[in-house]
Simulated scan of single mutants.
Amino acid sequence: MKSHTILLNINGEKRSVIVRSGDTLLYVIREKLGLTGAKPGCLNGDCGACTVNVEGWPMKSCLMLAVEANGKKVITIEGLENTPIQQAFVENFAFQCGYCTPGFIMNCHSLIERHPDAENPLIKEWLESNICRCTGYAEIEKAVKSVLRKNQSRE
């Protein structure tokens, strides 16, 4: 399989990496760049454990080829250090085992950035793209709403 050198803008840092044509973004992030926050779950796009942010949108990195991310801005959970949504997950006990948590946080961060005035139907729709097998989604939903409320009260 042919190799390519791509340039990723990952968590604000430009990184050059040699990839094969069929390497997924998840594989490259974890195995070549050592960023292990995005988790391999189903590896077919159903669970969302591998969610990252690409150009401001949540992306299941197991479905995206690394070459498709060439030159694009990619944020992983490691790039969201100390963000309001992370704190809200802690304050609202929005996790149990934690395996799905990075993907949920990335998805929720994108939701808050894209739709700062999101209401229940949109929040529920966005949360449907990720799966948690340990708990219900009430705490996760509560965490998202708490950040949205704080942001709206500052306006």
Rank of each mutant, 00 (worst) to 15 (best):
M1W: 08
T5V: 12
L8Y: 09
K14S: 14
I18L: 11
I18V: 14
L25M: 06
R30L: 04
T36P: 09
G37D: 06
P40W: 03
P40L: 05
D46Q: 13
D46V: 10
A49K: 01
V52R: 00
V54D: 00
E55N: 10
E55T: 03
G56Y: 00
W57V: 05
P58D: 04
M64L: 09
L65F: 08
A66E: 00
E68V: 01
A69W: 01
N70E: 06
K73N: 09
V74S: 00
I75L: 15
I75Q: 12
T76W: 12
I77A: 13
I77Y: 11
G79R: 03
N82P: 05
P84W: 07
Q86Y: 06
Q87Y: 11
Q87A: 14
A88D: 11
F89T: 09
V90T: 10
E91R: 13
F93Y: 13
Q96P: 02
G103E: 05
G103K: 05
H109C: 00
S110T: 07
S110F: 03
A118G: 07
E119D: 10
E119G: 03
P121M: 07
E125F: 01
C134T: 04
K142G: 08
V144G: 06
K145N: 14
S146A: 14
L148N: 13
N151V: 13
N151L: 15
S153E: 15
R154K: 15
E155A: 15
